[in-house]
Design a protein around this nucleic acid. Structure first.
Lengths: 107, 107
DNA sequence: ACTATATTTGGTTAAACATGCAAATAACCA
DNA sequence: TGGTTATTTGCATGTTTAACCAAATATAGT
């Protein structure tokens, strides 16, 4: 792997890493449904400490997946990318494919 | 998040986490091109210790992304899922979107 | 200015991950 | 059987991550 190739995979990995956490996946799902949501509502949806949720959001933002805007004392987050639904479709097909195999093993 | 929802996101996260590493992304790319590749060739492509590559492959396998078959003394890995190319398309669009923004900031 | 609310950041701790070397397995060849 | 090659696993080490609490920041309302 040369320099440029390495950089390419590192960039991709950074985005995937930002998505690779249950709480952050839930955040993305909520944002996909509601367009613009404040941290307090997202915190309710996740059920962890608000500081934890804030850091998760920071990671998503840092990866370019969400963006934020402050209105008054609240900060609203929204998705920056539309294709995530199809991405999850692919992930689900991995999951389903694997689940099928496990059924095969059991039978 | 109830039990079932939590499980759903954890399963997805597991797959994404398996993909979220530069070396493993490179492995997936090589496998997407060549259909079936032995560990030794994959090791050459990555440039890390073979034991490291073997562990990366184990992670991909554990997540259901690749499968393996032994022929003689060599183990061949192949992709189990076809949709990964479109998935990377989405990742790239995140990357590009972010890159554009950074250009905007600079200008 | 003072208080309350929303969010982020600092500090700490425990768990997970990545890597290389060396050793264990497994399969081939002589 | 003995030696060689391909792959995986055990072990040790350093790095990263996640979580919570407490403290800092920022904004709104009084």
């Amino acid at each position: 792997m040369n320099r440029a190739e390495k950089a390419k995979y590192e960039t991709r990995a950074k985005v995937l890493k930002a998505l690779a956490h249950p709480a952050r996946l839930k955040l993305v799902d909520v944002l996909a449904e509601h367009d613009e949501v404040c941290v307090c509502d997202l915190t309710d949806a996740i059920g962890s400490d608000m500081s934890t949720v804030s850091r998760h959001l920071a990671q998503l933002k840092n990866a370019g997946i969400v963006e934020s805007e402050k209105h008054g004392q609240m900060v609203f987050y929204r998705l920056r990318v539309k294709c995530l639904t199809s991405l999850f479709g692919c992930i689900e097909s991995v999951v389903k494919c694997q689940a099928d195999d496990q059924l095969k093993v059991l039978s």
